[in-house]
Design a binder for these strands. Sequence first.
DNA 1: GTTAGTGTCATAGCTTTCTATTACACTATA
DNA 2: TATAGTGTAATAGAAAGCTATGACACTAAC
Lengths: 125, 125
Amino acid sequence: MKFDDRIPIYYQIKQYFYQQIITQQLQPGDKLPGVRQLAVDLTVNVNTIQRALQELITEGVLFSKRGLGNFVTTDHDTIKQLKHRVVSGQVAWYYHQLEKLGLSPASMQQALADYIEEENHDPKS
Amino acid sequence: MKFDDRIPIYYQIKQYFYQQIITQQLQPGDKLPGVRQLAVDLTVNVNTIQRALQELITEGVLFSKRGLGNFVTTDHDTIKQLKHRVVSGQVAWYYHQLEKLGLSPASMQQALADYIEEENHDPKS
DNA sequence: GTTAGTGTCATAGCTTTCTATTACACTATA
DNA sequence: TATAGTGTAATAGAAAGCTATGACACTAAC
């Protein structure tokens, strides 16, 4: 897995699991791969995996059964809140970054619209 | 100045100067405060200021006159490109983060619109 | 020429993050 | 009860970033 070397890896791994859960690629009650396997898959050390998982467990997003594995919470409300928290966080971050750069709300929306337009220049032919 | 402790301070200082220049609070040819003064203002060490400035100089955004100070480039084209680079970068980042979270382009625009709506709930009375 | 203000550089030490490695604890099952 | 698969934990070392500090080089003005 590719990491942004300006941000701690364990933090990026947390974001990765957020994504997996929010997009339902990991569903409530699902068992995660073993920590040693995750370490191989994400090309990091077991301790780094562990640090990320530990925080997710503290947040109630995952739970651990010693000797069995780590699992996604079965509390649908927690997952709903997680999704809201993560998405809202991204939007707020975007808004305030562009605000600092002097853009008006209308300009922000226009900039996004323009970017989406570009992304759609059919990659066929 | 407040810093996000997940990101190197020198990197955040670079962003700060980008903002200052893009919003024209620092204009072409302007002299920056001395490095020792900046260190006090931003509550970091001179070496950390130096590292940020050095990269900005390498990028051509600033130039240094030994014994005199650091100055904003007078090349308007460089500044124009900087603005485009920084704003585009933010938009692209936002788009891809939300894409990873499973949102459609339409949902992204809606989420931004909703946030702007919230921000405008008149804070008066 | 001296002084004050400026950029530049180097060293040493601290903290955080990450790695490698080893060990221990628990669960299920043959 | 032995074994394989799992989570958990501790240690030591490397690398990056930040700080504190001191020194040096250049410019302008007295």
